[in-house]
Amino acid sequence: MSRLLEIEDLSVTFGGLHALNNLNFHVDEGEIVSVIGPNGAGKTTFFNLISGMVNPSAGDIRFKGDSIVGFDPNQVTALGIARTFQNVRLFANMTILENVMVSQHCRTKQGLFGALFQTPGFKKEEVEIREHAEKVLGFFGSRLVGYRLEQPASVLSYANRRRLEIARAMATKPELILLDEPVAGMNPKESAELTGLIGRLRSEWGFTVVMIEHDMNVVRDVSDRVVCLDHGEPIAAGSFEEVSTNPEVVEAYLGRPIEKSRETDGAAT
């Protein structure tokens, strides 16, 4: 297995606050890695750094061996890293189909000319975009397809919005997919189903997955490795069993029931 993502001594400060401090981290191709940690540990900041939405104050991020520090988010996505957002951010007034079609932007290339003259290339690409979109949506069963395709994303339930966000990220044809609390706000039945789907993201689609999650059942069921962050620093890494029994991790979570902290992660965003 080759290194897909390597992170070296990554730090970022927001006006004196060390949101992340000397973080070293790596993901191998085909892995599913979970990032856990109490609220405000810097997990979402970590994702923002990888996806190019925040620039690090020090350190390096390498994707497939090349540094991606200083790239715009769209360039990072074009290189093959897609993400979802903790507080679901869909294009609420575009249809479900359009949401997934638009995220194939960086994989397609037809410009104004094709659209204006309806060139065969343009038509072919539109068909491909649509087919790929339907294929991605079909991954989640019947709930995002059929009559749903033409509905605006704003009518979806919370759980379906989360699913659509994952679909949108999948449609960018990434190699690495970053899921920010994919099961937050779902009931146990839905969480279990989505856990299965995350496993299939690797087996069927070949994605490497990095996931921030508070639901320890999900983390246990699906991750190869778990990394625990606290105050912007990694305090433990290894298999789920190792990390979950690590006294430092227990201390970091102490007095804070895991079930509760899933709902808000305010300080980190």
Partner: peptide, 13 residues
Amino acid sequence: EDESVAEAMGINT
């Protein structure tokens, strides 16, 4: 709809 998300979805805004 949302410029920063559009950018994160690979659109060169």
